Amino acid sequence: MASSEVDQKFLGKLAKQVESNNALLASMLFKILGLSINLAEQTAKVRKQRRPDASRTTQSLELYFHIIWLSREGLIMLEQYVLPMVGDHGELKVLAFKLRASFYHVFVLFHNNPSISTIGINTPLPGIPQIPRLEKGKGVDRNDAIPETGRSSVQPTHPTEGGPVGPPPGFGPKLPEPVGAFLLPSVDYRPTAHEYFKQAVALADSLLWGSHSLRLSVKTEYAAFLYECLHDQEGSRRLAKDTIAEVYDASEGMDDDMFRDACELVTVLGNMTKRGLESNPTLPTGAPDPDPLATSKADTIPRTVPAAIPASGMENFI
């Protein structure tokens, strides 16, 4: 979410490349890099705290607030200073579009309304006792305390007669604001995040070759978004399988660093092709793997030459 190790590598590399020509853009990329590293650490903490301790509720909320604030600030820097200046820089453009979708991915997981994740800030924290609502000045319910024979003869006997008078429409009790609404509006961010992921994937398909690690990063997080946020398990598995196939079909070479990143991402994608199948009752025990590519070892990714040779039209524009 927000940035993987692959994204962070490209943020640093691209920031250095544009520093001599565009100091402002380089500065913003370095700031987003530092922010994304901090954000990755905070989200990792939350995922480890699947069941926060009731005695540490304040610390848990502060952690959630910090995650939302970091994502909001990163998105502001990205939209105001990076996206307008990416121009025809191929890798930088893909990275910027991917980071925008990734920040919204964080909003969906932690601050979506309705809540779709157990780690979200709108989800009640386990272990917190629920305080019953007290009726001021009434104590017990008097209707139950007075026996039927002792009721006054002037009390209404028809169900539609008498009773409390409610406030007119629009003047009822004010609903409490969702937690964290002071940082970010509490709305449904899924449609926006999904649209931005589709844009990032389309851009990566058009500008980067099949085994490019940044392209794999885009599709890996999109597959995670489909599974975790849209609950589209079949779509997530299909995307992971298709992405692995694209890697094996690619004929372009990779340098050592990109090759290692591609191996790691293919391993993650291979696990995603099986995600959710263990709980599927329609899958018979001992059934063959749904995709032979998913069981292949990551170190079998073809690498034709030791140096990176981009496809025609895929040269680095920076």
Rank of each mutant, 00 (worst) to 15 (best):
S3M: 14
V6E: 01
V6L: 07
D7S: 15
K9P: 00
F10L: 11
L11H: 04
A15Q: 03
K16G: 14
A26W: 05
S27E: 15
M28P: 02
K31R: 09
L35Q: 04
A40M: 11
Q42E: 09
K45G: 01
R47F: 14
R50Y: 12
T57F: 01
T57R: 14
T58Q: 08
L63Y: 02
F65C: 00
W69P: 00
R72Y: 05
G74R: 05
L75Q: 08
P84I: 06
H89N: 11
A96R: 09
H105L: 02
H105R: 06
H111A: 12
I116V: 15
T118E: 11
T123W: 10
P124C: 08
I131F: 01
P132Y: 06
P132N: 14
R133H: 15
L134V: 10
E135R: 11
E135Y: 05
G137H: 12
V140P: 01
N143F: 05
A145T: 08
T149L: 12
V154K: 10
T160Q: 15
G163T: 14
P164A: 15
V165T: 15
F171P: 00
K174W: 00
P176M: 08
E177Y: 03
F182K: 11
S186A: 15
A193E: 09
E195R: 14
F197G: 03
F197T: 05
L208G: 09
W209L: 09
G210Q: 08
G210W: 03
R215C: 03
L216G: 07
L216I: 12
S217A: 15
V218I: 07
A223L: 02
F225N: 01
Y227H: 07
Y227M: 13
H231P: 00
R238T: 15
L239Y: 12
G253E: 00
R260N: 01
L265H: 02
T267Y: 10
L269T: 00
T273F: 08
R275H: 12
S279Y: 00
S279I: 04
T282A: 12
L283D: 04
L283W: 04
P288H: 03
D291I: 02
D291N: 10
D291L: 05
L293H: 05
D299K: 14
A311W: 04
S312Q: 12
